[in-house]
């Protein structure tokens, strides 16, 4: 009986090699970021740190500033994220007239529908829940850091105190209580939106044409969508 189960797991496992199971439930969560509304104040980063006890210099969410300038030549792209944007952004040594466009882009775990990190975890310590959230079992993780290498968005970090990998959970403990993630809660301008795919405010933004995902060429199917960002964001 046990052997049969063993064979069964192997069969399923080898199947999983080709088919990564996407979220089962119909009401999966999605996250929408409107870059135009982000003012780069860093309160999301602070709130995330307080809520999830993120260690120093590690970020579950961070804010990047994109400044595209042109001085007659083709676009120059400057990207920065000092301290993950936690303490705001300083002045830049650029001529205001040369700036073509400048904006802030909050980043976080994309909770991909085809997560490359889940695919490479050797011990099944990270998985995708029915709600489409990618979680880590910190007491199961062996700390091989393979998932960090596999994540194209740099969302995972190594917790040097606990010696395991950690990442954004979309505040799983909050959203399962019907609350919104901490970063969404504290955003003063509503640049971050969170909800089920069927929710009205999500549906409204997802019907917009300028919505996009990051690194679509990798076919990870992220569930974080971006509005009003330029081509230079990936």
């Amino acid at each position: 009986m046990k052997r049969r189960e063993f064979i069964k797991t192997i069969m399923i496992g080898s199947l999983a090699f080709f088919l990564i199971k996407p979220a089962k439930s119909k009401d999966i969560f999605v996250y929408v970021v409107d870059s135009k509304k982000c003012i780069g104040c860093g309160s999301c980063v602070k709130a995330c740190r307080a809520e999830n006890h993120v260690p120093e210099r590690k970020y579950r969410t961070w804010v990047e500033r994109y400044v595209v300038t042109s001085n007659g030549e083709l676009e120059n792209i400057f990207v920065e994220s000092p301290n993950g944007g936690e303490f705001g952004f300083g002045d830049l040594d650029v001529d205001e007239n040369e700036i073509l466009r400048a904006y802030f882009v909050p980043k976080l775990c994309m909770h991909c529908d085809k997560p490359p990190c889940v695919k490479v975890c050797p011990v099944n310590a990270t998985w995708i829940t029915e709600e489409g959230v990618v979680l880590i079992d910190k007491s199961h993780c062996i700390g091989c850091k393979y998932c960090i290498q596999a994540c194209p968005y740099g969302a995972r970090y190594f917790n040097h105190h606990e010696k395991v990998v950690d990442k954004c959970t979309w505040c799983y403990h909050r959203i399962m209580r019907g609350m919104r993630p901490a970063c969404v809660t504290v955003c003063p301008t509503g640049a971050r939106m969170f909800g089920k795919l069927q929710d009205e405010h999500i549906q409204k933004t997802l019907r917009e044409r300028n919505i996009r995902i990051l690194k679509p060429e990798l076919n990870t199917r992220p569930k974080v969508f971006y509005e009003n960002v330029g081509w230079e964001v990936w």
Binding site: G13, C121, N124
Partner: peptide
């Protein structure tokens, strides 16, 4: 608890 889609 092997994950057979993982090379490791």
């Amino acid at each position: 608890t092997p994950n057979f889609s993982s090379v490791m």
